[in-house]
């Protein structure tokens, strides 16, 4: 039986299909888990109960019900919209998220595709969603959407740089750009890189929040100003795609941060042989910890103003990240 399975998966196409199915399953699961965490945590922070009835206890089925509801809704496309672009935008945003999952190591060898330029690939792909957002904002035929889309573009360009620069420190320390290679380097070193790369880690988290367009960097959506920004005209399952992508993106960016700075699937004290099984759980635990911090931020802070956001990126984060790289490089050579 096992032999049969191994045989089956040694076939390239079948293994590809299996991987695809797994990824396709993971996105809604992650989206729902994080979405539910957000709903419940925000309720807790705001002295509310949150969803209560769907599914019986704690309203655990709330998001499933919501998802079904989204699919039942009428697919409304505004008359002024650029139809093909309008339809394509949510897909593009979701695809970029899916593509990011590919390079995240869930355990030793548990990775969809271990690219030698893994982190490079991840950062390149993550900016793909910008194009999707810009497309959504442009094609909606709505002024709020347009402003939202342009804000998103300006913001993501500004924060792409610190995001990339923040990563460089870890890459220098590990000496590899492969995601699993970076984790293995941390296991070998015996400490997570955050100990030396705390500046890089901080910058990465801030920039990741901006990439995710979450509060305090949610100007592209900015409900009180732009109604819903680039999402204004979206409804039904297209909106659901954006919604899923947001949470899946939160997961993947947290996972990248965990991989680069927090030791990935590894935890000190756990024997390497056990990592194959415990790895995914450890990774998920760390990711949810980071996600919790992001949710916490969201329900505590108001949003920045557009100019303050740009100032933060260009005048603070980028110089800081450059200094971090220089110091890391010098220390790497000296030590």
């Amino acid at each position: 039986m096992i032999e049969l399975l191994t045989d089956l998966f040694s076939n390239f196409w079948i293994s590809l299909a299996g991987k695809l199915a797994l990824v396709a399953l993971m996105i809604p699961l992650i989206g729902m888990a994080l979405g539910f965490a957000e709903i419940k945590l925000s309720a807790k922070m705001q002295a509310r109960v949150g969803p209560y009835f769907a599914g019986g206890r704690w309203g655990w089925a709330q998001l499933i019900a919501d998802g079904i509801k989204f699919f039942q809704k009428e697919d409304i496309i505004p008359a002024a919209a650029d139809r093909p672009v309008f339809k394509m935008a949510p897909m593009l945003v979701l695809v970029s998220t899916v593509a990011l999952l590919v390079v995240i190591p869930f355990g030793p060898g548990l990775i969809f595709q271990d690219l030698s330029v893994g982190i490079f690939y991840a950062l390149a792909i993550s900016s793909l969603s910008t194009i999707g957002i810009l497309m959504a904002g442009w094609s909606s035929g709505n002024k709020y959407s347009l402003i939202g889309g342009l804000r998103a573009a300006g913001q993501l360009i500004a924060y792409e740089l610190p995001l990339v620069l923040a990563v460089v420190g870890s890459v220098i320390m590990a000496g590899t750009m492969s995601m699993s290679g970076i984790v293995e380097a941390q296991i070998e070193a015996g400490f997570p890189y955050v100990i030396f790369q705390f500046v890089g880690f901080g910058i990465f988290i801030v920039a990741a929040l901006a990439e995710l367009t979450r509060i305090p960097f949610d100007m592209p959506i900015a409900e009180s100003e732009l109604v819903m920004g680039y999402l204004t005209e979206y409804s039904g399952f297209r909106f659901l795609f954006f919604f899923l992508a947001e949470f899946a993106n939160m997961f993947t960016l947290s996972a990248i941060a965990v991989t680069l700075f927090l030791g990935g699937y590894w935890l000190p004290g756990i024997p390497e042989s056990a990592l194959e099984l415990a790895g995914p759980a450890i990774l998920l635990g760390k990711v949810f910890l980071l996600a919790f911090v992001m949710i916490w931020f969201r329900w505590t802070f108001p949003r920045f103003r557009e100019d303050q956001l740009q100032t933060l990126a260009w005048k603070w984060l980028i110089p800081l990240a450059l200094v971090n790289i220089a110091v890391t490089g010098i220390l790497k050579v000296v030590l």
Partner: peptide, 16 residues
């Protein structure tokens, strides 16, 4: 007012 600046949480404390 905080809601207009993007912070949702004070709303619930004040309204309570």
């Amino acid at each position: 007012y905080p809601l207009e600046l993007g912070a949702a949480t004070p709303l619930f404390f004040a309204l309570r």
